[in-house]
């Protein structure tokens, strides 16, 4: 059981990275971004391109970092993969969502457009990388035995630490900086933000960069934990939505708790259910929340 909770925290940390961006986008751009899971996939493939193709092709030699299954090349690939994914998200916004916003379409149209973008992104990934599974590194990945019967691989400890460093960095950004406060203000009351002179389109751009970047980090960490494949982010979309609804949609701090809860619940459920049912468990949690507390744990006025 403790072992499953450990895996749950790993999965939950990854879900949190996706969920925080999804909930920020919902709060500021005002629609549910169905392409968010595929932004995670894109980030994972971009890191693959850099770490497993580009750097080796340049003749850069890599060596493993301590007990981790990968080396510093992987770490170096993190940041550009996050940045490029963020820029892709901004590009999609300019190309599609911004035009729709200017037409003043209802949010459901934007959500449907993002669903289309999800298919397009995934199709592009199939075209460029094919349907096969990829691994960042090959080789054995030994387990560490931790107290309380928790078994984790060093990679998984890296995943948890990296995810939380990013979450804390985002927290500090939202809490301490002028830009971060303006993002929260805009999520709170977009009309008043505009009246106060906050440049709302610029804020939207930053939201996509942050949301896309965090999603990419989540995708890369998911790739480190298991493998890189075209459907990896898409199948995480439902848990992402469950996490943000659980935490109160639009609330980044809620997404953090929601992500962890969904991750742990999904993994612990495998004690009794086949792992194939994990998405169904997220779905069940989602329905229960919607029935009994639709505003989420931290929701409300």
């Amino acid at each position: 059981m403790a072992e499953l909770v450990g895996y749950g925290v790993v999965l939950g940390s990854i879900i949190t990275l996706g969920a925080i961006g999804l909930t920020l986008i919902y709060g500021i751009v005002r629609f549910g971004n169905f392409a968010h899971g595929d932004l995670m996939t894109l980030g994972a493939y971009l890191a693959l391109l850099l770490a497993a193709r580009l750097f080796p092709a340049l003749g850069v030699s890599d060596s493993r970092l301590g007990a981790l299954s990968f080396g510093w090349v992987m770490l170096v690939s993190f940041v550009p993969a996050m940045v490029v994914t963020g820029l892709v998200a901004v590009g999609v916004d300019r190309l599609v969502y911004q035009r729709l916003r200017h037409l003043r379409v209802p949010p459901v149209m934007l959500a449907m457009a993002s669903l289309a973008m999800a298919f397009i992104l995934r199709s592009l990934i199939y075209i460029f990388w094919g349907p096969d599974f990829h691994f960042y590194t090959s080789g054995l990945r030994p387990m560490l035995m931790l107290p309380l019967g928790i078994k984790l691989r060093p990679d998984q400890i890296f995943i948890i630490v990296t995810a939380w460093v990013l979450v804390v960095a985002l927290y500090l950004f939202l809490q301490r900086t002028k830009m971060g406060k303006a993002l929260r203000a805009m999520a709170d009351n977009p009309d008043l933000a505009r009246i106060s002179g906050i440049p709302t389109e610029q804020m939207t751009t930053w939201t996509w960069i942050i949301g896309g970047g965090m999603a990419a980090a989540g995708g890369i960490l998911l790739g480190i934990d298991s493998q890189v494949r075209p459907e990896m982010g898409w199948i995480l979309l439902l848990p992402l939505f469950a996490a943000i609804i659980l935490g109160g949609i639009g609330n980044p701090y809620g997404a953090l708790v929601g992500g962890l809860v969904i991750g742990v619940v999904q993994q612990v459920s495998t004690q009794w259910l086949l792992p194939a049912y994990k998405p169904a468990v997220a779905f069940a949690v989602l329905i229960v929340i919607l029935l009994f507390r639709p505003q989420g744990i931290f929701g409300g006025s």
């Binding site: 406060k181 929260r184 203000a185 999520a187 709170d188 009351n189 009309d191 008043l192 933000a193 006025s301």
Partner: peptide
Amino acid sequence: VDNVFPSL
């Protein structure tokens, strides 16, 4: 109405 940022 809505003349403040309530969560700030």
